[in-house]
C-alpha cells in the first residue's frame, strides 16, 4: 500500500509541519516515509507545499506529478493542484477564502471548515491538526495513536502540554467529515 500525498497552502499555515508529523506517524508504524518540502527563500509567508509518501515498500521517486490525496489550504493551491489528483483520488480543501470551487467529477472532494473550527477552538495553531484529523478520517493511513506518538517525538518537551489540545483538534477534524 502506498499513499502519495501533497499538502499545499500559505507559509505559516503549518503546511510543512503537518507533513512532517504525518511522515513521523508513518515512521512510528515502521512504514517507509518520505517528506519533501517546496517553498521560497522568505522566512515568512509565501506559498509552501510538501509531498509526503507513506508506504509499505521502498519509495522510489520523491518527486511526483499526481497524487492519491491532495490537501489544499488556499485558492492558489486549489487552482494549482486540482488537476493533479489521480482519478478516484481525494481532494480535500479548507473552505475559508475559497471563491472558485473544484469542478472535477472523477475524484472524491471533501470541503472542510477547518479555519472556522480552529477559531471556534480559540487557537488558530490547531488548524493543521484539524486538517490532519479530517484527512486521516477519510484515508486512515496511520492511526491517531501514531500521530500522538509522532507529536511527542517532534515537539520539544516544553511543548508536550499542548498534546491534549492537538489530540482534541485531530478529533474535531475527524468530526468535520460527514458521510
Amino acid at each position: 500500500m502506498i499513499n502519495e500525498i501533497v499538502i499545499a497552502g500559505f507559509g505559516g499555515q503549518g503546511v510543512l509541519s503537518m507533513g512532517k508529523i504525518l511522515a513521523y506517524s508513518g515512521l512510528m508504524e515502521d512504514k517507509e516515509v518520505c517528506w519533501l518540502p517546496s517553498y521560497g527563500p522568505e522566512q515568512r509567508g509565501g506559498t509552501a507545499n510538501v509531498t509526503v509518501i507513506v508506504s509499505d515498500e521502498r519509495i522510489s521517486s520523491p518527486v511526483l506529478n499526481t497524487y492519491d490525496v491532495v490537501v489544499v489550504l488556499n485558492q492558489q493551491s486549489l487552482d494549482k493542484f486540482e488537476s493533479k489528483v489521480k482519478p478516484g483520488g481525494i481532494l480535500m480543501y479548507d473552505t475559508y477564502g475559497i471563491h472558485k470551487k473544484p469542478t472535477r467529477t472523477d475524484i472524491k472532494i471533501y470541503p472542510i471548515d477547518a479555519t472556522e473550527k480552529s477559531i471556534e477552538m480559540k487557537n488558530s495553531k490547531t488548524f493543521n491538526m484539524i486538517v490532519l484529523g479530517s484527512m486521516l478520517k477519510v484515508r486512515p493511513m496511520v492511526t491517531i495513536e501514531s500521530v500522538l506518538k509522532a507529536l511527542k517525538k517532534t515537539l520539544p518537551e516544553r511543548h508536550w502540554h499542548l498534546i491534549p489540545l492537538n489530540e482534541e483538534a485531530l478529533k474535531e477534524g475527524g468530526n468535520l467529515i460527514k458521510e
Binding site: 512532517k20 511522515a23 515512521l27 517507509e32 516515509v33 518520505c34 517528506w35 519533501l36 518540502p37 519509495i59 520523491p62 518527486v63
Partner: peptide, 9 residues
Amino acid sequence: GTIGQLMEK
C-alpha cells in the same frame, strides 16, 4: 537540493 531537503527513514 532535493536530496538535501528530503526527510526519510
